[in-house]
Write a protein that binds this DNA or RNA. Structure first.
Lengths: 151, 151
DNA sequence: ACAAATAACTTGTATAATGCAAGTGATTAC
DNA sequence: GTAATCACTTGCATTATACAAGTTATTTGT
């Protein structure tokens, strides 16, 4: 029935779990993707209660892996703005399926109206909206970046 | 790890990560769902190299959570057969999206032809096949169970 | 029938990851 | 200029995982 072609290190599930096979990484992604959080303090405020050292570690690792990007905050010299990259946004289908599963399997689960609608509509519209929003934010931050860089 | 710190959290992502937010749980699910593995020794043989105590722990937890079920092996009194429950099979869309992501983001990733085809075809056919296969196996094992139970 | 091998674990211990509290250094507010 | 704040870092306690060895019931070989 099954060949053992994919039992080696090239199993995509295994590769994926190298990146987000832990308790916190996908929660940071969730905050970025669906809850509009962008700053360290906002991630810290999520009520799962991530430890500050773990958050710092995950932000570093996600940057190294190219899933998020860090920009200086145009509004404040002591904060930074984190954004998902294209690669990071590519986790959207996984996140959506995880949320769907959570909703199906636990009646206590609740999501934003935005996500609720996305789920009912198949998810494509929200994905497109997130992509456009992301491009807009990135453009604004890069504009700021070159503006302040040229001073 | 999978403590329920999450008593008051209604976020489905967070609820989901209570169940499978670790390095090993989804690999066991993968083995059951896509690689036809059913026995302790088969899970141990996966190339990722899970520790024996961790495997035992995850099998227990998955049982408690109702994602897998344990049956006596009709062929051997010292082995058991593990099967996904309906609930466990309900993780299929997540697993498929994770595999898709792995394939998209890492060119080294390889899957069985079966899974490759499932991905190209949208995934519904393989899901149906897995469901039917699962029902057949469960029926066979339950038949054995009552047959041997009546001796 | 009996010894050896095997499957499926359990137990003990070393190591790595995480949680928690306190500290640091650069802003920013007063 | 001083105090408060933010985004971390550091140190230490706790927890999870890795690794190795042991255990028990079963099965295999002779």
């Amino acid at each position: 029935m099954q060949t053992d072609l994919n039992i080696d290190c090239r199993c995509p599930t295994s590769l994926a779990l190298d990146l987000f096979g832990d308790r916190w990484t996908l929660l940071v992604i969730r905050d970025l993707m669906f809850l509009g959080k962008r700053r360290y303090g906002e991630f810290m405020a999520s009520h799962e209660g991530i430890s500050t050292n773990i958050l710092a570690d995950r932000l570093h690792k996600l940057q190294q892996q190219g899933l998020i990007e860090k920009f200086p905050d145009p509004d404040s010299a002591r904060t930074a703005v984190y954004l998902l990259t294209e690669s990071g946004l590519d986790l959207y289908p996984i996140m959506l399926e995880i949320m769907c599963w959570g909703i199906r399997s636990d009646s206590r689960a609740r999501v934003t109206q935005e996500v609720e609608q996305a789920i009912n509509g198949g998810g494509a519209a929200l994905r497109q909206a997130l992509l456009e929003q992301n491009h807009a934010e990135r453009a604004a931050l890069k504009g700021q970046l070159s503006a302040s860089g040229s001073e």
